[in-house]
């Protein structure tokens, strides 16, 4: 029971930060695209890169949770 709680807590805490980060990144990118629609292709590439960086943090905690759960 405690083990399951720890696993759930790991991914919950680890997912929280990146969720906020991705929301902020996309909000700002949409703002930039709205202001300057000609640059939207470039903004999109950079946005996806930024999301990948933020998402990597969530993936670290996901891998930790999976290791805790299944080994």
């Amino acid at each position: 029971m405690t083990e399951n709680f720890v696993v759930g807590f790991t991914i919950a805490m680890g997912g929280m930060g990146p969720a906020i980060a991705i929301g902020l990144i996309v909000a700002k990118a949409l703002e930039a695209m709205g202001r300057n629609p000609e640059a939207s292709a470039r903004v999109q590439t950079v946005m996806i890169l930024g999301i990948a960086f933020a998402e990597a943090i969530a993936i670290y905690s996901l891998v930790m949770a999976l290791i805790l759960k299944f080994t």
Binding site: E55, I59, L62, L66
Partner: peptide, 16 residues
């Protein structure tokens, strides 16, 4: 580390 874990985590998590 980040290259390796990002790809592995995403695909393995998808499988799970």
């Amino acid at each position: 580390i980040s290259f390796a874990f990002r790809l592995f985590g995403n695909i393995f998590a998808g499988e799970v």
